[in-house]
Nucleic acid binder design. Structure first.
Lengths: 174, 174
DNA sequence: CGATTATAGATGCACTTGCATCTATAAGGA
DNA sequence: TCCTTATAGATGCAAGTGCATCTATAATCG
């Protein structure tokens, strides 16, 4: 998915007349966000695959588990920390369990819940992945940005992840 | 996929000893790039879905077609412009053709090739999507960044999309 | 020319994702 | 308590994706 944009267009949406047309600057930022993310992610995933390692999603789960005490979390906790959808995580855990990287255990305080526990193999895999992953990050980002630029970029991107306080709805004025 | 990172780790990869560990700044930038892109893309796709419109990939194709003279491109040209993989594009075109938004025609100069032509319905759809898409961009980015910030962000992201001249290989010094 | 190699695009298959739904357990309220 | 509602997690099915491969045509080179 690429995302170019026809900047010579118009708009009107979200109930009725509402937000203004995004500025050219904003549109350009969006397109480049998509492109850069896609390219860099693709490159990094390639590096992982080339090293016969599983995709990044696995790393996310392993990392979350490995960094908490006891190496165990409830699925919904992993969900929150990784932004993985519930049903996707459920099946990702299936695969990881089959691969021997995690184990599901009963959670006695709540019959609905489960523990997900990282195994020794899981910890080893987390470390193995990080070797390759770190190198890939350095190669595909670190070699292109100095620390000042990276900080600046992180700063700007952080703004985008914040919840907006301008939701899409008729303005509350009556 | 979320992408957190254990910053207290080490590395070594890409043939032999090579790139240094990415700096904390770089790692943070990467994590935020992933997060921001995922959140904003997800939000925008939600808006499209809520308006009963197809996903962004369709828009990319429609836009590329609608902006060239004659409204026709070869599949490989669309591929280049959108970063869609060949086999994915092939099947996306199947769906779009079935939906009456594009049509495939023979390309007489080269028996292997095909034309992809946008239909009137396709053009109408492109415009309809843009209505919603533009509003979504404004909502999820424009409301959070001023133009100066957007320009700055676009600038930094552009650097990431450039081909690196530090490929992963033993340095060429002998 | 004929054989090899390259390119455009399609397709079979396995895997992943999204969506809705389902089961089981827990919590809250009459 | 019983009944309703909410939450944790799993799962069936449809759709999308990656990967390898296939077909057809074109280009290149002996």
């Amino acid at each position: 998915m690429s995302v170019n944009i026809d900047v010579t267009a118009f708009m009107l949406n979200c109930s009725e007349a509402e937000a203004a047309q995004p500025s050219l600057s904003v549109i350009r930022a969006w397109v480049r966000l998509m492109r850069a993310q896609q390219l860099v992610l693709g490159a990094i995933e390639q590096d992982l695959k080339a090293a016969d390692l599983p995709p990044l999603g696995w790393y996310d789960v392993l990392l979350e588990l490995s960094r908490v005490e006891g190496g165990r979390l409830r699925p919904y906790e992993i969900e929150e920390r990784t932004l993985l959808a519930q049903h996707n995580l459920s099946r990702l855990l299936d695969r990881m369990e089959k691969a021997g990287l995690v184990q599901r255990e009963v959670f006695s305080e709540d019959g609905r819940g489960r523990w997900v526990v990282i195994t020794e193999n899981g910890r080893a895999m987390q470390a193995r992945i990080w070797n390759v992953y770190a190198a890939a990050i350095q190669r595909h980002l670190g070699n292109k940005l100095n620390n000042g630029q990276a900080d600046q970029l992180a700063e700007l991107l952080a703004v985008l992840s914040q919840k907006s306080y301008r939701p899409c709805q008729k303005s509350a004025d009556i």
